[in-house]
Design a protein around this nucleic acid. Structure first.
Lengths: 147, 147
DNA sequence: TTTTTTGCAAAGACTTTGCATTGGA
DNA sequence: TCCAATGCAAAGTCTTTGCAAAAAA
């Protein structure tokens, strides 16, 4: 999907939810759309320092983005990471953090997604709970650090 | 496995790692062995209030238990939960938190464990990373709240 | 204009640390 | 005895909140 279209779509989501399209929000939307990595609140803040956006504003907008489903929160090792959720489609995410170099990456093989869906369906069928969200975090040593 | 044997085994682990078997540690071991629920540091502290164990001591011992593999840390919704790790055997855990009532439970069907192992093996084979730990947290609405 | 949003400063919540005292081996 | 562990108080982090000023609609 087109980069600018994503931004327009997200802006629409915010407006539809009654939020104003402020300068800080536009900048933050761009950051999340462009970023390929998982970011903590302070990471976002650092990227906005030159724009004189305050840390409380970063926190407040992250909360709004989360609430409207634009981004997803991912707690890893006692830290809060955020990633774009919209446009991840039906895809479910499996994250991996290397304990040696700290890198966080995501596996997105169709095969794995199928296994996750099977797990979710198994639980819904056999336990009766409704599953809205599945977060898998694996940790170990990455390929590069193993060498 | 026998309850007292678990306690003795954990005490041995601590001693083998050069830690002294203090009153607060014995009490905390018992709490983790007896507890069926996931606990936050303050939950443990509350159970120890009458024994005049301080909060810093709870934090320091949790750190030691974690480091020696006695307990496992599980970050859910920006909070740190702990559960006994030793004796969970080869079992892998899938946790579920109900967004309505807040209950945290664990699924331990053999079927699910098999699926998780398949996922882990798939990743190790196809991506080359070594996976030491798999944490799955699902959220949604539990059976009871759905009614 | 009217209501939301923002920055700043301050407060809060949770966690860690310094240090003198206590306690386990 | 000797070093580790503890309690207390204080300091650190990260996150949230109150409020007046600024900006969006």
């Amino acid at each position: 999907m087109d980069h600018n279209q994503k931004i327009l779509d997200i802006e629409k989501i915010l407006k539809d939810n009654g939020y104003k399209l402020t300068g800080s929000r536009k900048l933050m939307i761009k950051i999340f759309v462009d970023s390929k990595i998982h970011m903590r609140p302070d990471d976002v803040y650092q990227l906005l320092r030159n724009d004189r956006i305050s840390l409380p504003t970063v926190y407040r907008n992250i909360e709004i983005f989360k609430e409207t489903g634009v981004i997803k929160e991912l707690p890893i090792q006692n830290e809060r990471y955020y990633e774009l959720e919209i446009y991840s489609g039906k895809k479910m995410h499996i994250h991996f953090q290397c304990q040696s170099c700290g890198i966080i990456k995501e596996y997105s093989d169709l095969e794995l997604i199928k296994m996750m869906i099977a797990e979710r369906d198994f639980i819904e069928t056999n336990h009766g709970d409704r599953i809205d969200d599945v977060t898998i975090v694996m940790s170990g040593t990455c390929k590069i650090c193993l060498k």
